[in-house]
């Protein structure tokens, strides 16, 4: 299965989305990411029981922070997919890339004049 997804996406693998910290997400934006998605296992299917549920809470908290500091919470999202849903994964990445393109570059990247800002993405 060779599924195509946009090349301006950087994948950061973690053992479980439960490992994804609020600071990882915030730092991605500080470094100039235009958008971040966290992709975890289906709810109820976490190998570590509740890792993806913690991730969901953290994502929501960071979305709130991004809204309040003028970056925009819509630049961050979380999805829950199983390992057999590669097709859907590629589709989500295409959709989110389009959405971020519409939103334009992150205000952080604009302000700091960083030339390229990859869409950082975290997945399991």
């Amino acid at each position: 299965m060779r599924l195509q997804y946009p090349p301006n996406v950087r994948i950061i693998e973690v053992p479980c989305t439960g490992k994804v910290d609020i600071m990882h997400l915030l730092m991605a934006f500080e470094y100039g990411a235009d958008g971040v998605i966290v992709v975890g296992c289906l709810e109820g299917d976490c190998h570590y029981s509740a890792g993806n549920l913690y991730a969901k809470k953290r994502v929501n908290r960071v979305k709130e922070i991004l809204d309040k500091v003028g970056v925009g919470g819509e630049r961050l999202a979380m999805y829950n997919l199983s390992s057999g849903m590669g097709g859907r994964f590629a589709e989500i990445v295409r959709e989110i890339t389009e959405k971020i393109m519409e939103l334009g570059p992150s205000p952080i990247r604009v302000a700091t004049g960083k030339a390229t800002g990859p869409i950082a993405e975290v997945t399991t």
């Binding site: 915030l26 934006f29 922070i65 991004l66 309040k68 500091v69 970056v71 952080i108 302000a111």
Partner: peptide, 8 residues
């Protein structure tokens, strides 16, 4: 959060 705010 404050850094993001000031930067943007």
């Amino acid at each position: 959060a404050l850094r993001l705010y000031f930067t943007q």
